[in-house]
Amino acid sequence: MAIVIERLSGDNRQMTHYRFDKPSVSVGRGYGNDIRLQDPYVCAEHILIETQPEDGTILVRDLGSMNGMLVNGKPCVEAKVMPEDVLTLGKTRLRLFDSHAKVAPTLRLSVVEAKLAFLSDWRFALLIALLYAASLSYQTYTHTFKEFEFSSLVPRLLGEFVVLSVWPLLFGLLARLYKQDARLTNQFALLWSVALCGLALSWLNRWLQFNFPQLPLWYWVETLVAGGLFFVLLWTSLLIAFHQSLARRNRIALGATLIMLSLLLGWKQLNQASFSPSPQYRFSIMQPGYSLGEGMQVDDFIEQTDALYQRTKAQRDKP
């Protein structure tokens, strides 16, 4: 049996770890201590930690220090400490327990983690970034209805880069705060991939809207796909940034996605309920090559509008 002493950060995370195979350990600022703290508020001989041979409990004793000793914030001269108690000497925080204390169960490595190894290759990140930039440039080009200037492209690309970078940088920073690798290459590669998927999906959406504007429940499909994409992005970002259990990661990603979706749907609902003097719609049209089959005959279409008149009539009769 040995005494384990952890020096803690402000939020009780372990900073340094000591292990002593002897019954008593002294702590203070003096050079003769087993653990020397460089805290100016700690005395040369501050406390003594002892284990009781009979039951293995750990006892701490203040050796008459100037600033005293706090156990869980309460001043004590002598105390029996449990593994969860936090000891404060000056401005230093310690936790004491014996080496038999149980550690949390091992986390299983995510299978996805191994499959995402390619994300850590900077060449992949660069390739995806270039692809995304090329797609954006093409989009800008086909939305310019005057002389196209490459110089006008730069602010657009830079702006997009800066705005999108917030996400990977945020996760990198959070990871560092939690004492883990930032893994920025992975985060950036992931973000560009998702952004590229987003572009492709919005193009597909436009094509479907153009060809099949009357697809039932289309709005729901669209919203769910957008939610799915967000879920994948958040889930994978969490996987890259943090060491957490699968269940916890699922919970966070699902929770955030649901919040986002409910905000979107709530907004839509709010808009739908309010009166608008003009029609609310989105019009999609594409070049001749992108249409599937021919349109309806005029007469058939006109006949079909009966239902529309019925719908407004029902809306009118609604109390």
Binding site: P213, G295, M296
Partner: peptide, 11 residues
């Protein structure tokens, strides 16, 4: 009432 709309391709 609000407008109710339908979109379609026709020929």
């Amino acid at each position: 009432t609000n407008f109710a709309c339908e979109q379609q391709r026709i020929q």
